[in-house]
Simulated assay, not measured.
Amino acid sequence: MVKKDIEWSQLGFSYIKTDKRYISHWKDGKWDEGKLVEDNTISISEGSTSLHYGQECFEGLKAYATKDGGIQLFRPDENAKRMQRTCEKIMMPLVSVEKFIDACMQVVKANEAWVPPYGTGATFYLRPFVIGVGDNIGVKPAEEYIFGVFGMPVGPYFKGGLSPVNFTTTDADRAAPHGTGKIKVGGNYAASLKSHSEAVDRGYADCIYLDPLTHTKIDEVGAANFFGITKDNKFVTPNSSSILPSITKYSLLQVAKEYLGMEAVEDDVYIDDLDKFAEAGACGTAAVITPIGGIEHKGKFHVFYSETEVGPVTKKLYDTLYGIQMGDIKAPEGWIYKVK
């Protein structure tokens, strides 16, 4: 397979139109077989529920080129299950795990020339989505839906790759307790745009959301999950009803326990108790791990390990998880799906 002529190591996290994408329609109570298409535009009714009532969701996962020339997906079944939970919450038809994984594999195979080669630091990002469509006007579930998957090569989400960045807290709330924070709907991200922009304008990579009920505990780091390494070497990540259950976070919990021999827990992380952490980071599919240099809160700036160097435990966590994703380290049973 002849690869595209791209400076893979220079890629950022930006949209690139690739050759093929997958599309499937729900009508009359069932999904059709789905197919690959070249057109990267979708024509939908002006009455689509996705446009008016936010009846839509998405996922994000990656395909990785391995040293032996293969390509693999990392825990796509977990993305499929999370999409099912989202669809169920906002009354959209479920996409089966099998259909979800098959669609992702079809897109990767059809765009193999766009999958970054092993060792370049770039990966192939997949964006599955479900949207409510059709002629609607009342506040009710749509009668027709589209399930699609497209993909593109990407570099690191935050510029600089594995190097510390700084964050600031915000008084804004992205999601409510027991609301849509635990599902992956676009409205959660629309609700974060202003706070993100304000944080960037102040010189930070993104903002940190505190729990919406008391504003005393860390919930999420922008579009990623938070984790901290305590001074007695415990991996801690927030536990909250308004946090998206990150597949990367739960993978890191397992990696910390089984590969690094650490105690790893979900627990409250109080914003006024950051001194207990020797290191901290943000994690997610797009970012994988981004070390947190420091956090600004109410005029005070707390530095963790360093603003310029990656902490040793964070580095081990990253190297282990990334090694598993790239096929260089043996993965736990069921984590890897071979595309070829």
Rank of each mutant, 00 (worst) to 15 (best):
G186L: 12
S192I: 06
L193W: 15
K194R: 14
S195I: 08
H196L: 14
S197A: 14
S197H: 15
G203Q: 09
G203T: 03
Y209D: 03
L213D: 14
T216N: 09
K217I: 00
K217S: 09
I218F: 11
I218S: 03
V221L: 12
A223Y: 05
F227M: 04
G228R: 05
I229R: 01
D232Q: 06
F235K: 01
F235P: 00
T237K: 00
P238G: 05
N239E: 11
S240T: 04
S241E: 09
S242D: 00
I243P: 00
L244I: 13
P245T: 01
K249Q: 11
V255N: 08
A256I: 08
A256T: 09
K257G: 05
Y259D: 08
G261C: 10
M262K: 06
A264I: 03
E266I: 00
Y270W: 09
I271H: 06
D272I: 02
L274Y: 07
A278S: 15
A278D: 09
E279Q: 11
A282Y: 01
C283D: 05
C283T: 05
G284A: 11
A286M: 13
V288C: 09
V288A: 11
V288F: 09
P291E: 04
P291I: 14
G293P: 01
G294A: 15
G294Y: 05
I295A: 07
E296A: 14
H297S: 12
K300D: 12
K300N: 13
K300P: 01
H302T: 15
